[in-house]
Design a binder for these strands. Structure first.
Lengths: 112, 112
DNA sequence: TTGCCATACCTCGCGACACAAGGCATTATA
DNA sequence: TATAATGCCTTGTGTCGCGAGGTATGGCAA
């Protein structure tokens, strides 16, 4: 129930999180803002999206977490694991293939 | 409950259908195959996806239908209305903005 | 000191939607 | 005479994005 091409265009939040965390360790609240800023407000994922995805990714071994206190603030930093990097590659590849396919239909390219 | 940015990456089946029907009148079964072929099997939407969307689009006035019999086969052809063309433009614009935003995050472009 | 906002974490419940599976009817094919 | 292909459709399920809400701390202004 999770291996096929189901929900073919889903998992974008997951993709974005993995990609951002690849650059540097980040925490949930930070990710919410980073996605908003880097997308110039085109994408605004709330915490209700981010946190569950983070937990799922950690449970699946794609992310590892470490609690750190900064300025008396307790933060949960997430880092990409090797499995997470693999998953990121897979998701990015899928996303690329999918958008290419959609784009070619939108453009109206002649199909073989 | 339908005006905000909710389910931001959804509605791709709708987008593809509107785009294909813009070229020429098509019927459900034909759309299923056309999407599969034009995407080179990257996208395979079943009839359980196509028909409900067609009905919803017609209900909303984006498509008009006409029943025609070909070779003893009864087909329901769908054509794009003016409202449908408008909706197509909107969806295509949204899709473009969304994929651009995602792409820029994936690439890692410097953000202002 | 008393609010209020920002930071930072989290969960619950709703709704939408894509999908598989199935059902019905007809025509062509083996 | 089956079986596949054509052509239409609906129902049920699971997933997932999301808003709303809840907790707690720190800083700042009134």
């Amino acid at each position: 129930m999770a291996e096929n091409n189901s929900n073919f265009m889903s998992g974008v939040p997951e993709l974005l999180i993995l990609r951002l965390v690849r650059e540097k360790e980040m925490y949930g609240y930070e990710l919410v803002q980073a996605i908003r800023e880097r997308s110039h407000d085109a994408i605004a994922l709330g915490e209700g999206v981010i946190y569950p995805v983070l937990h799922a990714l950690e449970r699946d071994g794609a992310l590892s977490s470490s609690r750190k206190t900064v300025n008396g603030r307790s933060r949960v930093y997430y880092a990409l694991t090797a499995a997470g990097a693999q998953r990121l590659d897979d998701l990015a590849g899928n996303w690329s293939r999918l958008t290419d396919a959609i784009q070619s239909i939108l453009i109206g390219v002649q199909h073989a």
